[in-house]
Computed example of a mutant assay.
Amino acid sequence: MTDEPELELLRRADPVPAGDPRWRDRPLDARAELGLRRLLAAEAASEGAAASAPRRTARRLGGLVTGLAAVAAAVVAVVAVLVLVLTGTGTTPAVAAPVALRPLAGSRGVPLADVAGAAREAAARGGGTGTRRGSHVMMWSMGMESGPGARPPVILPEEHLTRWNADGGGTELVVATDPRHPGKPVISDSGGAPRTVADGAVLHRAAYPPGTLPPYGRSGTEPPDSAKEMRGYLSQVYGCACADTPALLDALTSLLHDWTPGLSGTAAVDELLAAAPGLRPAGAVTDRLGRPGQAYVHDADGLRRMIVLDPADGRVLGIEETFTRDQPEYRVRAGDVMSYQAWMD
């Protein structure tokens, strides 16, 4: 690939917005470097396979992060749950209509204030592990194309396990797997066009030496344990306009990819959610990994966002985004699930 296409690619990703000082004079972190490599590889593959009509791949950013980390988020942070229809290893993968999570009929919605209170009580009792850097998350990623000759959307299920140490070193593992279909082939676009791979195929493995990240990652400090300080932290680190509920949910998604909060940090997150405008209880739900939780939804900008919490301790189990308007350019309809990710201990 020539320098000009790479420059244009970075311009479209807008890795350093004008006037944003937070990312000046800092190196890419490991996730961003991985994301940049994969983004450039995908662009090169699409250029080599392009037909007479141009085709582009669309991945939902959803405002998850700003700055250079958006390059990584464009590749790995956007997720969706769909039913896979594999038509053979040598053929183009396709998908059936996605199905959104549905709260159990007749179930009682627990107010967010009650969940936040339970989380604060759990923090007061103590126990469990403290906040740690890194995360363990199952992600189902929707790959979409637009333009003449575009392929149908495909689902890219991946499990990400990232661990960072206080010295800035750590490990990262990305595996192609779908816990809903154990042992079945899954679709991956690692290194280029979508293809089927074996369940459990390692897509990326890396060990980073001390000093790869500054202490506590890009923020320079561990997430706080109070709601007021957490709001300021999200604003400073992730550029969150936290009075806007979609922006708050996107910033929390980024936080949960960088960190696994302890009990006090979880309580702070839940207290922010309890004060979020328009976020309403939807009832009991079973998440994508079979865990019971409480669902809370918010509608805006053509999307319904659902966050699933464990009512016992307030942990975030998952976040789902569903289209509320047709998007014919990408062959999706209102009611289709655009993104889902599930966090694990």
Rank of each mutant, 00 (worst) to 15 (best):
M338S: 09
Q327A: 15
D299P: 01
G169T: 01
G126K: 01
L36P: 00
I155C: 08
R24H: 14
A49N: 06
L161A: 05
G314F: 03
Y233V: 14
T260Y: 02
K184P: 04
R325Y: 02
V337S: 12
G183Q: 11
R31E: 10
A247F: 12
D189H: 10
R180L: 09
S107E: 11
H160R: 02
A13N: 08
V76N: 12
A243T: 14
L10E: 04
E145R: 05
A276Q: 04
S135L: 00
V76C: 09
P209D: 03
A97I: 08
L289V: 14
G109T: 07
Y340F: 11
R288T: 01
A166I: 01
G278S: 00
G128I: 10
Q236N: 09
E172R: 12
P153W: 08
A206H: 09
S146Q: 13
M144I: 06
D167Y: 13
G283I: 07
R218M: 15
S226V: 10
P194D: 11
A53D: 15
L279C: 13
P17S: 08
G290M: 15
G127E: 00
P5F: 01
T196G: 02
V110Y: 09
G239P: 05
R231E: 15
A123M: 06
L86Y: 00
E47G: 10
G19Q: 04
T245F: 09
D299E: 07
L39N: 00
S190W: 10
A166W: 06
H181L: 12
W140S: 14
R38S: 11
G217T: 06
S46K: 06
P182T: 10
E329Q: 13
G168P: 01
A247K: 13
P182D: 14
E145D: 14
P261Q: 05
G128R: 02
T91Y: 02
G147T: 09
T177D: 07
S46Q: 12
Y340C: 04
S264D: 11
A122E: 12
R133C: 08
E222W: 00
R37D: 15
E4Q: 06
R132C: 07
